[in-house]
Simulated assay, not measured.
Amino acid sequence: MQTLNWNDLRFFLAVARGGGLMAAARRLEVDQTTVARRLAALEAAIGARLIDRSSRGVTLTGQGMALVEHAERIEAETIAAAARLGVEGQPLSGVVRLATPEAFGAGLVAPAAKAFHDKYPGLQLELVPESRSVNLSRREADIAISLSRPTHGRLVARRLADYTLGLYASRAYLEAHGPLRSLADLPGRPLVWYIDEMIDVPELRYLDQVADGAPTMFRSNSIAAQQAAVASGLGFGVLHKFAASEDPRLVRVLPDALDLRRSYWLCVHADQARIPRVRAVMDFLSEIIAARQKDL
């Protein structure tokens, strides 16, 4: 095996993180041909294929996954060396991909996008607000907000915030059909809920705590769609307090009887935690939570 070139490793990391050559080219502000050439040179130096290509993008081979860990350690040491030699004051630049649950991303991160850009104009934040779990070890994201503490992988995790889920209905629905006296009456009312078989996060399975057997009139794994359906007057739904309280069409119902508490965990791969642009996003998330703490 030939001596590895750090520049080639840098291009390989961009491909691994972006999921394709085109995404890597955008991150590095070069053309796709340059990325392909650098990757080919690295594979030739190692003597092994690092990625498998398909119409859906690229996936890392076993050798590629092993190389990512070493390349990220080299990247972290390079950044640490630059900081020690006085280069730390340079403006942050690059791309950070943040994966979050939908409500967290749309309700907390997106409204702070301008503030983030004003503070870090050289950083591009990629927000992936989905219900499914992401694999940080496979570099599906740089940072993830999870509903539980991860138990596998070389991950650094800390509890970011607790939040409240409550039962809501629209003012129009309550005026037309009357108030709900107790949770025992909920099975006789229409309920908006998740598509059970498509939930892969255990913390979202709490129907039995609300009204087991209640008729569901509308199902969606998008919490934003659920909130919109409840606000339209369809029936009741369990929504995030920090999002639903900002919608004047919605009223919280039986807050003393139903007050679900869940937690957001901030997770990052151990090799990523020292990278300044990643740390900047982590710190900014903490600032968002501090500013919105009373709403959660």
Results as ranks from 00 to 15, higher is better:
Ala14Ser: 12
Arg249Cys: 11
Gly233Leu: 00
Asp185Asn: 05
Thr3Arg: 14
Val109His: 08
Ala224Lys: 12
Ala211Leu: 03
Ala161Pro: 04
Asp31Glu: 02
Glu102Cys: 07
Arg261Thr: 09
Ile289Lys: 02
Leu147Pro: 10
Asp142Trp: 04
Arg154Thr: 08
Leu266Gln: 14
Glu72Tyr: 11
Met1Tyr: 03
Gly89Lys: 13
Arg181Tyr: 04
Arg26Ala: 10
Val35Ile: 13
Thr33Tyr: 06
Gln32Gly: 08
Arg139Ser: 08
Val253Met: 11
Gly105Ile: 03
Val35Met: 02
Ala44Gly: 12
Pro248Gly: 11
Gly107Asn: 02
Leu9Arg: 07
Ser93Thr: 14
Ala229Pro: 01
Arg159Leu: 12
Glu130Asn: 12
Ala228Ile: 06
Ala66Ser: 10
Arg249Pro: 12
Arg149Pro: 05
Ala113Pro: 02
Asn135Arg: 13
Ala41Pro: 07
Ala40Trp: 02
Val15Trp: 01
Leu285Arg: 00
Arg189Cys: 03
Val95Gln: 06
Ile51Arg: 10
Ser286Thr: 13
Ala225Asp: 08
Ser222Pro: 09
Gly94Tyr: 08
Val201Glu: 07
Ala99His: 15
Pro248Thr: 13
Lys294His: 14
Leu165Trp: 04
Leu50Ala: 06
Ala71Thr: 05
Gln227Ala: 14
Leu21Asn: 09
Ala243Arg: 15
Glu203Asn: 04
Arg277Val: 00
Thr33Glu: 06
Leu254Cys: 07
Ile145Lys: 07
Ile199Ala: 06
Phe236Pro: 03
Thr216Cys: 14
Leu42Thr: 00
Arg277Ser: 02
Glu197Trp: 13
Tyr206Ala: 03
Pro111Phe: 09
Val251Phe: 10
Ser93Met: 08
Arg97Thr: 15
Lys119Thr: 10
Phe104Leu: 00
Val58Met: 01
Arg158Met: 11
Leu285Glu: 00
Ala44Asn: 14
Leu296Ile: 05
Ala157Met: 09
Glu72Ser: 02
Val68Cys: 13
Thr3Gly: 13
Phe11Lys: 00
Ala161Ser: 12
Arg73Ala: 07
Val109Leu: 04
Val109Phe: 04
Ile223Glu: 08
